[in-house]
Nucleic acid binder design. Structure first.
Lengths: 216, 216
DNA sequence: GTTTCAATAGGGCATATGCCCTATTTTAGA
DNA sequence: TCTAAAATAGGGCATATGCCCTATTGAAAC
């Protein structure tokens, strides 16, 4: 099965170069090329025989983000891979919001590009590693503004960590004692020591602080 | 420069298999292996000569998500790649939140794995295409569906959430009562109701469950 | 070889917590 | 408007917890 591909880029030279790159692969046929988002939609309306689109971001008249959104609106199953030199958070985020199925930098090699196209058509998504990292960070950021403050890296003994681990499950001292095969008195002693080290004075605070500091 | 690697998996056979896979590459040395998150932290505390960690998700004692969060807290520069058979949204989301730098399925081939490790150490991120797609989808709809599983979407009243928030700071009932300008008896009544709704019977469990379900 | 320290075990006591009970007022929905 | 739910307030009781005390053992440090 051939991958019917469209290339959207305002730089004629780059389109030419891409066509040459892709001509190495017999399973890829170029359906059409376009120089901006509007032209892209025109051609798409005339000839819908397209499986995948390689989309530039910076284009006149209608940029890659808008074009992607429009294409996805018309043909939700048509895969769109962004192919650009821009790797800033905002472009990445907007492209993904617009429905892009992949995001590659233009430095991507021929075989890597081909592989990305195949993977995308198989229902996956491909990103340049540096883009993937930014995508992950975007996914983290809305909910995780915390970056680690770690006052002075408190050092707990192995045994104390074990006790703390059990403590964090919410079971009472007596149950912890049974699990660790020690007396409840010893458990309480360990917990006292833990509290002193962590500078807290309750279960909840100890658990919270331990989690923040990566102790458990 | 050698990539000093740690492998965390509760399946001894899989660790063995991974070690063999990686032995093909002279630039990779295995620093240590561990069978669960706790063991991992123990060994990490003893021998910090690690650049990258391959982390399973399902493990006893302390799963891969918790372990990743703990490792990242302790050593933020240590790269963690999740290597698992689970590809559900919740695991992916939680792993990323925990700070994972990559997410691969166990079916990943030797050269692909090696490439992912190198890319990750070079400051990128690598995901199996199917995982990348799900990550993109999570990024598209960050708030809509279900971040956590939410057994029956427990509904707490406004007041109960207020009480729960105070409870999570670790202060005693009496202090909560003062902060909310109500009697300690009322605080205790609210907490009883909260426990019933959340199906728990202690402070620590209530706080943990509330956090998991995004109630606080 | 002695000292220091972590892990163990024990006890006492005041307060906090979890769970049972009733009851009034306020709010919101049918 | 009437009613159901939520918020409020109160009490009792067994257990858990936080914090004080001492003491033995084994292992590491000096």
């Amino acid at each position: 099965m051939s991958i019917r591909t469209a290339i959207i880029d305002d730089n004629h030279f780059l389109i030419k170069s891409l066509q040459e790159k892709l001509s190495l692969f017999p399973d890829i046929t170029i359906s059409f090329t376009a120089n901006d988002g509007l032209q892209c939609m025109d051609k798409l309306n005339q000839d819908p025989q397209v499986d995948l689109m390689l989309m530039d971001l910076e284009m006149p008249v209608k940029n890659g983000i808008e074009a992607t959104a429009a294409v996805k609106q018309r043909c939700p199953d048509l895969k769109v891979i962004i192919l650009t030199v821009f790797d800033d958070d905002e472009n990445i985020f907007n492209a993904i919001q617009a429905g892009a199925d992949g995001y590659l930098l233009k430095e991507t090699g021929a075989h890597e590009l081909h592989n990305a196209m195949v993977q995308t058509l198989n229902g996956g998504a491909i990103m340049t590693p540096s883009i993937a990292l930014k995508a992950l960070n975007l996914l983290r950021s809305p909910l995780a503004p915390t970056v680690a403050h770690m006052e002075e890296s408190v050092q707990l003994s192995n045994r104390e960590v074990e006790v703390l681990e059990q403590l964090s499950t919410g079971i009472p001292y007596t149950a912890i004692a049974e699990k660790l095969f020690i007396s409840p008195f010893t458990v309480r002693k360990h917990i006292e020591n833990i509290y002193k080290k962590l500078q807290v004075n309750s279960k909840v605070m100890a658990i919270e602080k331990a989690k923040r500091n990566g102790l458990i």
